[in-house]
Nucleic acid binder design. Structure first.
Lengths: 214, 214
DNA sequence: CCAGGCATACCAACCGGTTGGTATGCCGCA
DNA sequence: TGCGGCATACCAACCGGTTGGTATGCCTGG
């Protein structure tokens, strides 16, 4: 019983096209520098459609952060490192995956939430909170493994929550450093920085000797 | 022989006022969201003065990054940690100073170059390079001490240059995380993250046991 | 089964205000 | 008297957002 709309080629409602366009454009130019007209052009949609789905540009920003959060959250939830028996391996596996995901231009691997919150943290509480939810949600996904690793290795002086935030901090910082570079060296610099994060955790969890950091 | 301008209470040519206004406004709202009119209003100067001193808004951005770089560079060059005999103490002293400088709202302690490069890295090569010079200049100021610390402690698997970049990466990342928070917890989160950087370096340079990280 | 009433999704044209930028004039100092 | 250092006045392009309108799908009562 195929419903009444026989031709819906690749799904793609105007709303989704706008959110995907927002992710691309915000990553490359930031939120404030991206105009509604540009968003509509990139999405292949008219301005009327934009304001049909979003009451304001700010609301699009909030929705883009949530969309970003949902996409990345689903991706990392499915990743194979969750199957590792040792929690330390799961934590290092997450970092290794993040390193493997870095490549190409900065706008291809950088973070929408981190970019938006930097511009909008004071001017829009709604965007700030959506970005907080995205970044802290990513952090929380690693907290359980970190708690187990801390427990197993007897680490003191910090907490799983604090360490999970540090993962996100280093990732965000690595993206900023990458953006200072010309295209062809951006990814290398970002990977180098995540290498230090890996080394910090390897030392904390007594896995020194298997370093990658350069 | 006092130069020709006897009363320069807080200095204040239109150019300097504009640069100081740019630092304040870019920190709080970002570069794209800050208009030329707003800049002029904040500086108490007219638009004619703006375009007399800067050929374009982009040029003001470049000049603001250089101005920022010069101010912060001079500040850290004068800091007392340079007098510590042990290079490890000098490195940790720099981090402790950065921690001590964090307080209040995020726009009071965050970085102009890091904010600007995130928005402008693709749309303006001139701004990107000015921000690169600012951030990498800050990094380079610590490189010599890091090299000495690496040498003294026999650290392998990384370089002073890479570690000096990591300092900046963690600082930038800490600022982004801080911006996700409501005003009253922003500074705490940023300090927490620099605490992890301190702990990483303490472990690398065999100073474990004196942790601060929370 | 289908008529009709309403909701959803979308569009093209348009609005007032703001944007970065310019053209020109004034004015104190060397 | 000239010139650097501003201020005033102005502009075309663009901004986020609104308008009136159409095409289509879904639900309900007869």
């Amino acid at each position: 019983m195929i419903p009444n709309r026989p031709f819906r080629p690749t799904a793609a409602t105007a709303r989704e096209k706008l959110l995907e366009a927002a992710v691309r454009l915000v990553r490359a130019q930031g939120f404030a520098a991206t105009s509604v007209d540009q968003l509509c052009g990139e999405a292949g949609v008219t301005k009327g459609a934009f304001f049909h789905h979003f009451p304001s540009k700010e609301a699009l920003g909030v929705a883009a952060a949530e969309f970003w959060s949902a996409s990345t959250g689903a991706f990392f939830a499915d990743a194979p490192f969750h199957g590792f028996p040792d929690p330390v391996d799961r934590v290092l596996g997450y970092i290794d995956l993040r390193i493997a995901l870095i490549g190409g231009r900065a706008e291809a691997f950088s973070c929408v939430a981190g970019t938006m919150v930097q511009e909008a943290f004071r001017s829009s509480a709604a965007i700030r909170m959506a970005c907080e939810a995205s970044i802290m949600g990513n952090a929380a996904a690693l907290e359980e493994d970190l708690a187990a690793a801390i427990d197993r290795c007897g680490v003191s002086g910090t907490t799983a929550a604090s360490l999970s935030r540090h993962v996100q901090a280093v990732i965000q910082g690595a993206f900023i450093l990458a953006k200072t570079q010309p295209e062809d060296s951006a990814a290398d610099l970002a990977r180098e920085q995540l290498g230090h994060l890996r080394r910090y955790f390897a030392m904390l969890f007594h896995r020194i000797g298997e370093e990658i950091a350069s």
